[in-house]
Simulated assay, not measured.
Amino acid sequence: MVREKKVYPLAHGITTQDTFAVLGDTLKFIKHKHAWKVWRVLKDFGCTVYPVADGVGRVEGSKVYANLAQLTGKVTVIVPCLLPEKLKTLVADASSAGCTKIWFQEQTWSKDLQQECESAGIEVIRGCVLRHKTYPGKVSLRYLSPCYWHGLRDEKVPIKRFGRY
Score class of each variant (00 low, 15 high):
Thr26Gln: 11
Cys47Pro: 06
Pro9Arg: 10
Val22Lys: 02
Phe45Ala: 05
Lys28Ile: 04
Leu42Cys: 07
Phe29Ser: 06
Val41Trp: 01
Pro51Ala: 09
His34Tyr: 09
Gly55Trp: 15
Thr19Gly: 02
Ala21Asp: 07
Lys43Thr: 14
Thr26Arg: 14
Ile30Ser: 06
Trp36His: 12
Ile30Met: 11
Val7Arg: 02
Ala35Pro: 03
Thr15Ala: 13
His32Ser: 09
His32Tyr: 11
Cys47Tyr: 11
Gly55Val: 14
Thr48Arg: 15
Lys37Tyr: 09
Leu23Thr: 02
Pro51Phe: 12
Lys28Val: 05
Ile30Lys: 10
Lys28Asp: 07
His34Ser: 06
Asp54Gly: 12
Asp18His: 00
Gly46His: 09
Val52His: 08
Pro9Lys: 08
Ala35Phe: 00
Arg40Gln: 00
Val41Arg: 02
Gly46Thr: 07
Ala21Tyr: 03
Lys28Asn: 11
Cys47Val: 14
Trp39Met: 01
Ala11Asn: 04
Thr48Asp: 10
Leu23Pro: 04
Ala53Tyr: 08
Val41Pro: 02
His32Trp: 06
Lys43Tyr: 12
Cys47Thr: 09
Trp39Thr: 00
Ala11Gln: 10
Leu10Pro: 06
Asp18Gly: 00
Gly55Leu: 15
Thr26Ala: 15
Ala21Leu: 07
Trp36Asp: 04
Gln17Asn: 08
Arg40Glu: 00
Leu23Asp: 01
Ala11Leu: 13
Ile30Val: 15
Gly57Tyr: 07
Gln17Phe: 05
Ala53Ser: 12
Arg40Phe: 01
Val22His: 03
Asp44Ser: 14
Lys33Leu: 10
Lys6Glu: 09
His12Lys: 06
Gly55Glu: 12
Phe29Val: 12
Tyr50Pro: 12
Ala35Ser: 09
Phe29Gln: 07
Thr19Gln: 02
Asp18Phe: 01
Asp25Trp: 05
Gly57Met: 11
Lys33Met: 13
Phe20Gly: 02
Phe45Ser: 04
Asp54Ala: 14
Asp25Thr: 08
Asp54Met: 14
Tyr8Glu: 03
His34Gly: 01
Lys33Ala: 13
Ile14Cys: 04
Trp39Gly: 00
Thr16Glu: 03
Lys6Arg: 13
Val41Gly: 00
Ala35Thr: 00
Leu42Gln: 02
His34Glu: 04
Thr16Asn: 05
Lys33Thr: 04
Val41Thr: 11
Thr19Cys: 02
Gly57Asn: 15
Val49Met: 15
Arg40Asp: 00
Thr16Ile: 03
